[in-house]
């Protein structure tokens, strides 16, 4: 099957800063794909190149098998939901949504009908006559979505689509976006710095760091099998144990990652389960989070491990106070070896 999007060794530098360093990537039709990374990692540059707002210095971009590297944005069958929504302030909501049809010369009545349908799809049917500034953030975001979808693009690009929304609205929109993507069956590519968002919505995630893709995988693989220290700490907030410390703890000369909730916390004299890796340490601090608590335990002078302890399952953290000596243990299979 022809990929919906293909990037071939795409490179883009701004002066001496390399924003995207020879990135190759294929995205299948109908996929919900996330570009995840901290700011400055190249994920937004990647999106802008796909949209056509920017051209790569070298490499090629293909949409549905056709080379569009030098095709201007208006000639690409791709639409974008902008981070600031970029709604036209001098047009009504309905005019905003119908804009893509208007520039294609569709008749006024037909435009109005389709814009109405689109607004119904995002549950804003009654807001067509308003101006964008009269809407809330969440409503504006849905208008931006309706506007981008009216041209029935092959690919919808979303730049930090939920970044400006508050937590509750963000969760609602996650569900809504996912549902919309499944109903329409078009390829969604979205940029985010929020790993939770990427994991919960995407079919596959490309984790960016310093202009390169660190790892490209399904959310489950990324979380359970991070390949690099960066992915382990950025995606799962896992503990990353450096090579030197790892050798002391496990005897193996390879860095590994271990997630806080997979570490058992034992009182100083308590025995660990058979075959578990063990070490001793001192509690640096204890943070209570309600459903769970999070402790940091210093196991040698350069390594501190975070340990999560569920309130319901393993009991609370009573008796574990800052400064007390404890033992940590984990199943060897839970430690994920990392690439250098």
């Amino acid at each position: 099957m022809t990929p919906a999007i293909e990037l071939r060794a795409t490179r883009r530098a701004f002066g001496s800063v390399v924003a995207l360093d020879s990135v190759s990537l294929t995205i299948a039709p109908g996929e919900f794909f996330a570009l995840l990374g901290p700011s400055g990692s190249g994920k937004t540059t990647c999106l802008r190149l796909i949209a056509g707002f920017d051209q790569p210095d070298s490499g090629a971009i293909l949409l549905d098998g056709a080379d569009v590297t030098n095709t201007p944005p208006f000639a690409r069958n791709v639409n974008t939901v902008f981070q600031d929504y970029a709604l036209f302030p001098h047009m009504t909501v309905a005019e905003n949504v119908a804009y893509g049809l208007r520039v294609r010369g569709i008749a006024r009545a037909e435009r109005a009908r389709q814009a109405g349908d689109m607004l119904d799809l995002v549950r804003l049917g009654e807001f067509g006559a308003r101006r964008p500034h009269q809407l809330s953030g969440g409503q504006r975001q849905r208008v931006a979505l309706a506007r981008a979808l009216i041209n029935r693009p092959q690919v919808l690009l979303l730049d930090e689509p939920l970044g400006a929304l508050d937590l509750k609205l963000r969760e609602e929109m996650q569900v809504e976006l996912k549902g919309l993507q499944q109903r329409l069956g078009i390829t969604f590519v979205f940029v985010t710095h929020d790993q939770g968002e990427a994991l919960s919505m995407a079919d596959r995630v490309a984790v960016f760091s310093q202009g390169r893709i660190e790892q490209l995988d399904t959310p489950r693989e990324l979380y359970n099998r991070p390949q690099t220290a960066f992915v382990a700490s950025f995606v799962g907030s896992a503990n990353v144990v450096e090579r030197a410390a790892a050798q002391k703890l496990t005897g193996q000369d390879r860095a590994f990652a271990i997630r806080p909730e997979l570490i058992d916390l034992l009182a100083a004299g308590e025995p660990a389960a058979d075959g578990y890796v063990q070490c001793a340490g001192e509690i640096v601090d204890v943070l209570y989070h309600g459903a769970s608590s999070r402790l940091r335990v210093q196991v040698d002078e350069r390594t501190t491990l975070a340990v999560a302890r569920s309130e319901s399952a393993g009991g609370g953290v009573q008796g574990f106070t800052t400064g007390s000596r404890v033992r940590l243990a984990w199943r060897p299979g839970h430690a994920v070896p990392l690439r250098d």
């Binding site: 949209a51 056509g52 707002f53 201007p72 944005p73 208006f74 791709v78 639409n79 974008t80 902008f82 981070q83 600031d84 970029a86 709604l87 036209f88 302030p89 001098h90 804009y99 893509g100 208007r102 520039v103 294609r104 506007r147 981008a148 041209n151």
Partner: peptide, 27 residues
């Protein structure tokens, strides 16, 4: 006029002349 408005217009299929008439000029 924010640059993103001009990009949005191009993104939705407007040629440069259309972006000028529909977005730049009114704003």
């Amino acid at each position: 006029v924010p640059a993103s408005l001009l990009q949005a217009s191009a993104d939705l299929g407007a040629r440069p002349g259309q972006t000028f008439r529909n977005v730049v000029l009114p704003l």
